[in-house]
Simulated scan of single mutants.
Amino acid sequence: MSQSIIAKRYADALFQLGKEKSKLEQFESELQILRDVYRSNKEINTFLKHPRFSIEQKKKLVGDSFQSFSVEIVNTLKLIVERHREDIIVDMIDDYIEMLNDAKGIANADVYSVRELSEAEKQRISETFAPKVGKQSLNLTNIVDPSILGGLRLRVGNRIFDGSVSGKLRRIERQLVSANNR
């Protein structure tokens, strides 16, 4: 079974548990902290994967390191360690956050622009495009890309809204080429 399917299953189980216990937001904030720790501290991953340390030592490290977290999160981590699936932790967290955002009507989107956008501009873009993709709001990641020349390009999932100058020039070029071929 692929790692991504396994990560989704753990994320789904945590999501259902969070819903039952009304802890969805608490789980999200704890998982975001865990993701930051896991990405910034490579030694924890090395320790958790090392064959010389027993499962009990690894579970103790998880319990001691994340004792301020909810019992459900700590037990999930211990279960992941017990089953030697340390590689799925970041994917599981990403899947959980995606499920939570989907439940809230929020989508992640990349907006490409020539310069860094202000918060007000991001808010207007979110308000304009969220209804077009059937969401209540968008979490925007601004990517500065001078090659678009001007305007914006927005990517939400597999949908792209291209209002960039370079995109318009490409469309004009295609029209001219197709008109010459007739």
Rank of each mutant, 00 (worst) to 15 (best):
1 M>R: 02
1 M>N: 10
2 S>N: 15
3 Q>K: 12
5 I>E: 03
5 I>P: 00
6 I>N: 04
8 K>A: 09
8 K>G: 05
9 R>N: 11
9 R>S: 01
10 Y>V: 02
10 Y>A: 01
13 A>M: 08
14 L>M: 12
15 F>D: 01
15 F>W: 04
15 F>I: 02
16 Q>M: 14
17 L>A: 13
20 E>A: 14
22 S>Q: 14
23 K>Q: 15
25 E>Q: 11
26 Q>S: 14
27 F>C: 03
27 F>D: 01
28 E>M: 08
29 S>H: 14
30 E>I: 08
31 L>F: 03
32 Q>L: 15
34 L>D: 06
36 D>T: 06
40 S>R: 14
40 S>W: 12
42 K>S: 13
42 K>H: 11
43 E>C: 13
43 E>D: 14
44 I>C: 09
46 T>Q: 14
47 F>L: 13
49 K>V: 06
49 K>S: 12
50 H>E: 10
52 R>W: 07
53 F>I: 12
53 F>R: 10
56 E>Y: 10
57 Q>T: 09
58 K>W: 07
59 K>G: 06
61 L>S: 10
62 V>K: 09
63 G>W: 06
63 G>S: 14
70 S>Y: 04
71 V>A: 13
74 V>T: 05
76 T>K: 00
76 T>W: 00
77 L>H: 05
79 L>A: 06
80 I>Q: 00
81 V>W: 02
81 V>K: 00
85 R>G: 02
85 R>H: 09
88 I>E: 00
88 I>Y: 01
90 V>P: 05
97 I>W: 01
98 E>N: 12
98 E>Y: 04
99 M>P: 08
102 D>V: 01
103 A>F: 13
104 K>H: 12
105 G>H: 06
106 I>F: 04
110 D>Y: 09
111 V>P: 00
111 V>Q: 02
112 Y>F: 15
114 V>Q: 03
115 R>T: 08
119 E>Q: 13
121 E>A: 11
121 E>W: 00
121 E>V: 03
121 E>I: 04
124 R>H: 11
126 S>R: 00
127 E>H: 10
130 A>C: 03
132 K>A: 09
133 V>A: 00
133 V>L: 04
134 G>W: 05
135 K>E: 06
137 S>D: 04
144 V>S: 08
146 P>K: 14
147 S>E: 10
149 L>P: 03
149 L>H: 10
150 G>M: 10
157 G>K: 06
158 N>L: 11
160 I>W: 10
161 F>D: 00
161 F>V: 05
161 F>W: 11
162 D>S: 07
165 V>E: 11
169 L>R: 12
169 L>S: 04
173 E>G: 10
174 R>W: 06
175 Q>V: 08
176 L>T: 03
178 S>W: 04
182 R>T: 15
